[in-house]
Structure formats: C-alpha cells, structure tokens
Design a protein around this nucleic acid. Structure first.
Length: 425
RNA sequence: GUGAGUGUAGCUCAACUGGUUAGAGCAUCGGACUGUGGAUCCGAAGGCUGGGGGUUCGAGACCCCUCACUCACCCCA
C-alpha cells in the first residue's frame, strides 16, 4: 500500500488519478456519445491536440496570474531540455493549432469540440482530480452575441440529454480591454479603502487581481465586496450592448439564468461574456460547465485578430449527477458437450461474431449443468447448446435464459432470433 | 499548501474497559453435479489489522511519526 513498506511493495495509481473500470467505462462511453451527437448537431467537429505542450503556451494563454499557472501545472523538462507541461486546460492548444495550421483560412465561424484528459496539481477532493476529463467546445470568428447564447443553449441541451437536473446558469460580462482597466481602478480604490479588514489573501489580490476578491468565501470579505462597484455598471457601450443582446437571446431560447456580477473565472483571458452552470448535488466543486469569450487570445499569440468563445464541462462531475439509462447487454453463451462439440462450438462462435452476435464460451470441457450455471452467473441472455445429437441433426438448442424457454434452431436463424427477441425485452 | 475525519480479506462490516491462533456475510475457486441455469449443502483460498516506532507481561485497539483515502478551505471542470 504505502511506499515505505519494506517487503512487498505494491504499486498503486498516482494520487488524484483513478482507474475507470469496465462497469464505469460503459457510462463514460454513453456520455461521450451523447456529447458528440449534440455537438455534431450544432456543426462542431472534433479536433485532437497533444496532451502536452510547450510550457510557454499556458503561461501566455492561461495567464501568469492565474492559480492554474502559478501552482497547479505538471511541468517538467524533457530529455531535450525543453520545458513542457501536461495541459491544464484545452483552449490554448486549440488556438495554437489553428494558428499553426492556418485553419482560420477556412470559411468561418470555426466550431470544434474535444473530449480528453486534463492535468492539474490540486489537492484531490470530491469532484476534483489531478487527472480529470473535460468536454470542451470552442468557436472562432463569430462576434455576434447570438453565438454566446447558442453555446449556453447547447450546454443546456447537453445537460438535458444527460438527464441532469437542478442546475443554475450564472452569467456575467467581464468587459474588454477598453473598459475593464477603468473598472479595475475603481475596484482597487474601493478595496484599498477597506484593505485592513480583508483577509490576508484578499489583501494580496488588491494589487494582483482585485476581481478575485469576489471569489473569496470568507464572510467578512464577502460583506465588504458586496459594496464594491460592479463591472456591469462600468461596461463600455460595445460591451454593454453585447451583454444586453446576449441576455435577450437567452430569453428568446427561454433559458433561465441569473446575472452574477461577481462571477469571475479564474483564467485571465476572458473578455465580455462569462458563464457557469452549477448544480447543488456536487458539494463544494459545484460547477459542471464553465466558459466565456476570449476575443484577444488569437491576436496575442501572433495570429489574426479573430475572436473566440467556448466552454468546458467536467466529465467526472457530469457523470456523478447524470442519470443515464442502463442499456441491456445481450450475449449468447455457447455450451458444448464432448470434444467433437467443442470444435464445432469454436467455429460457430466465430461465425456468429462475424454476424455481430456477441458470444462467449468456456474452453474447459464441463457438464451442461456447470456450463449453464456459468452462463447464468455471467448473465447471458441466451445459451446455445451443442452436443452430439445436435451436430447430427444440424439443429441446436437455443435457450432464452430469462424465460427458460428453449427451442431447436438452425444456425443461420440465430442472429435474427437473438436480435428481435432481445429487443422485445 | 492548510484543516478535520477515516484506515481490519476483493466488497460490506465484527472483534467488550488492551487478553489465546483476528471472525462473519457477500463475491471468488473446487466438489456434491458428465444433457438443462439462478437454489442448497460441503470444502478451499483469501490478512504482516496501511507502514514504522513507542508504552505494556501482552496492542487491531493506547501514544508518536509517516503514508493513503475522504471531506472542507483554496481553486476550478
């Protein structure tokens, strides 16, 4: 168990990572398929980028003052002396790929999705892991606030398809490079005035990033922050207009939301729209979806001046509250009696599999009782019994394990029988 | 990084105020049972009680250290 045990040491999964065992993997596949289907309906296409990138990509993209970059990255030097980082989020990678492959030359707007592992050196707790998985979507080259609303609506639909209820959608605008500085200045002076009453952390934020004071959960800080100026009152005409229209489109879709002027995403690049979808069922880590607009990133990376927007959803969190339907599994267990029957059974198994019928058989020669017991324990839907008589007749016994009814069938009838009858269950 | 809680078989849990060789159920494997399953009965295997140190005649239990897990802070998906 532990590394310090002297004798037999057993190796276990790294802290904050976990194995997804077959039972659970089934649910993952289902959720991934649902997500892919939803995204494709909205015109999104999959893009796959490497799990590790130049460290610089995240320093520039995610931001030097974000906690993710400051203390949560898996960064190491490879054998060529390069500093590389296991991606803590996906957006910078996509932006990099678009610039690198000049994808912006294709007719826009560009819509991408991706599902895969991300890495952050956090202390694990409920809904938070060091290797976790995100569903991520990004849109480039669409500045109309209708897209902001459309991706929220799409996220909403995704949650619906996953049968996740009791969610709340929070929206905000964090302004742009034109209006935010003025607001930050006001905010900073307001914070400075009461700095002595703020917690140590928040006192530091006054100079580094006063927006983050809003995130503080200490009551006294919250009390004080409530009297701070709110960004929504300081938006420039363009940002204000964008925010107003964004909300109008949400209303058009009939999506309920709450304006949360203190909603501050911890990633530096956001501009204008930010949003988050939370659920009460998750404990402290209650955000299942989070995202926003990042109009300057492409330009900042030396690409063309193309705006971007996207969101990420945490797979582990989604799965812990999703109510997926259990898909019935159906397979045929082949029981064989005698060495001749075993040979026949092997061939039949192969033929059935070629016809998309899942089947299983044990190689050990045992009594019929034992084999049916096995089938039953493995929860086979059907058993196919093959003995001397059956081989002679060219007819085999197909037994429905649920009803116990069995009948003589010819080999070529099995695929249809198995499929139609299992659909009726 | 900080704090709290919990560590006994694959899983769920026992073991009195410290007292023989740490038990049970479920699961696993074998047998009863070589042409009809889920049952039943019998049996087997499975543990350095997370690890190390200490107190004691004696520790699964008490003390210290450590590791892991869980939850919360923080941060976020």
């Amino acid at each position: 168990m532990s590394e310090s045990s002297p004798g037999k040491k057993s190796i276990s999964a790294i802290k904050g990572t976990k194995d997804i065992l077959p039972r659970e993997a089934r649910a993952w596949q289902q959720a991934e398929n649902i997500a892919k289907n939803v995204f494709e309906l909205y015109g999104y296409r999959e893009i796959r980028a490497p799990v590790f990138e130049a460290t610089e990509l995240f320093e520039k993209g995610t931001g030097q003052t974000s906690d993710i970059v400051i203390k949560e990255m898996y960064t190491f030097t490879d054998k060529g002396g390069r500093s590389v980082t296991l991606r803590p989020e996906y957006t910078p990678s996509v932006v990099r790929a678009i610039i690198e492959h000049r994808l912006y030359l294709q007719p826009g707007p560009l819509r991408f999705y991706y599902i895969g592992p991300m890495f952050r050196y956090d202390k694990p707790q409920k809904g938070r892991y060091r290797q976790f998985h995100q569903i991520d979507i990004e849109v480039f080259g669409e500045s109309d606030p209708a897209i902001d609303a459309e991706i929220v609506e799409m996220a909403d639909y995704l949650l619906q398809e996953l049968r996740i209820s009791d969610t709340e959608t929070l929206v905000n605008s964090v302004g742009c490079r034109k209006c935010r500085p003025a607001y930050i200045k006001e905010l900073r002076t307001a914070a400075q005035a009461v700095a002595a009453s703020l917690c140590a952390d928040c006192q530091r934020k006054v100079t580094t990033n006063p927006l983050r004071i809003f995130d503080c959960k200490i009551e006294t800080c919250g009390e004080l922050a409530r009297r701070f100026p709110e960004i929504t009152a300081y938006l420039c005409a363009e940002c204000d207009d964008h925010f107003r229209n964004f909300r109008a489109y949400l209303d058009l879709y009939g999506i309920p939301y709450r304006i949360e002027p203190r909603l501050v995403r911890g990633i530096d690049y956001y501009t204008k729209t930010t949003f988050e979808i939370t659920t009460v069922k998750l404990g402290a880590q209650n955000a299942v979806v989070g995202g926003g607009r990042y109009d300057d990133m492409m330009k900042d990376f030396g690409g063309p001046d193309i705006c971007g927007i996207g969101f990420a959803a945490g797979m582990e969190r989604l799965l812990s509250v999703a109510r997926l339907e259990k898909k019935p599994e159906s397979f045929v267990f082949i029981a064989h009696l005698g060495s001749e029957a075993k040979k026949v059974a092997l061939g039949i198994a192969r033929d059935l599999r070629r016809q998309a019928v899942e089947c299983l058989l044990e190689f050990k020669e045992r009594g019929l009782k034992a084999q049916l017991g096995r089938a039953s324990k493995l929860q086979a839907s059907w058993s196919l019994i093959i003995g001397e008589e059956e081989i002679k007749k060219g007819q085999f016994l197909l037994k429905n394990m649920k009803t116990g009814v069995q009948r003589e069938v010819r080999l070529e009838d099995i695929p249809d029988l198995v499929r139609t009858e299992s659909r009726q269950d």
